[in-house]
Amino acid sequence: MKNDQSSLINKIKPGVEKSNNKVFQPLRTWFGKYISRKTFIIIRKTFFDICSLKKLIITIIAMLFLPLIFIFMPTGIDFGLISSHHAATIIGIALLFPAFFWTLGIAYTSIIGTSGSHLIAEEVSSGTMLILVSKPISRIKIFLGKYLAVIFFGMLISFISIFTIGWSGVLIKSGNIDHFISLVPFLTALYLYSVFIVFLFTSITMAFSSIFKKSRTASMIVLILIIFSFLAFMIIRTLTGALYGTFQIYHFDLGYHLGNVFVLFIETLNAIPPSAAWLMFFGQITGVYSLTSTIDPDQGINLGGLDKTNYYLPIFSLLIWILIAALLLFFGIWSLKRREISV
């Protein structure tokens, strides 16, 4: 019985196949277990199901809504007098909060959550999945096809949004197109962060879609998680004050971890230099920076801005949530594999 992946490989690289047999064949076979032409067929169908032109436009507008408000707020700075780098910093600081909190935060995660939550659950409950699983395609591929479609969709909308935010920021604030170049590190940091977010939230959403009967249950849970991460924990952090650290609430505070990872990308890419202007704000929203660090009034200088709370090393926050996302991905696959498909 010739399976689909090996025949595909034969078609793509008839020459290489034989010479590298020992090394590449097992690798290809392993890879082909998860990704093959059939996976791409599923990806394509799912992608166009979740990404109609109308939806794409509405989505982008929704994601841009908050940053645009921030962009239109006057800064009182004459962009003609400052360096390109300085201009990028000011634009970056203006965009930082709406980008983290809204565009790549509440809006982005909600869109991922609602786009992905029905993909498995609804196909099973409506009955279309019954025909799908009877076709000669493994359930792993069905899952990965849908999963990757959401990932690609997420990567597409975040790319468009970030790009648009950057351009409109530059055009509206300074009007000097050269400033866009200086803004690239910041936009890159945003994009890398969005890839992390789409990986995490697609895994969460699809795992729930894979186990629940109703897609509404899956999307409700994701939405509750989003509300907790971006809103509820902000209040909890403020209300609990020092207790937040004492009782180590940060372990469960996804909002803190996301902030931590966000700052990691900003720092690593040197996207925006630290300054009290945004650290304060960011500390309030995410708890990454300590708000109680006092500025010595005599010396009057605290150029480094606020101290980090450092509940977690940023890299740990990143790795732990990548690990969790990976586990959820496996869990989703495993659940679908075991799931009884009957109407």
Binding site: K38, S126, L130, I131, L132, S134, P136
Partner: peptide, 29 residues
């Protein structure tokens, strides 16, 4: 499953796909 073709009791289809589109999709799978 490569050897079987299955029609479930009360089959459910992707309602927004065309007949031809659906068959092509199934064929590719």
């Amino acid at each position: 499953k490569q050897l079987i073709g299955f029609l479930p009791q009360d089959p459910v289809f992707y309602e927004d796909m065309t007949g031809e589109g659906y068959l092509i999709y199934m064929g590719q799978l």
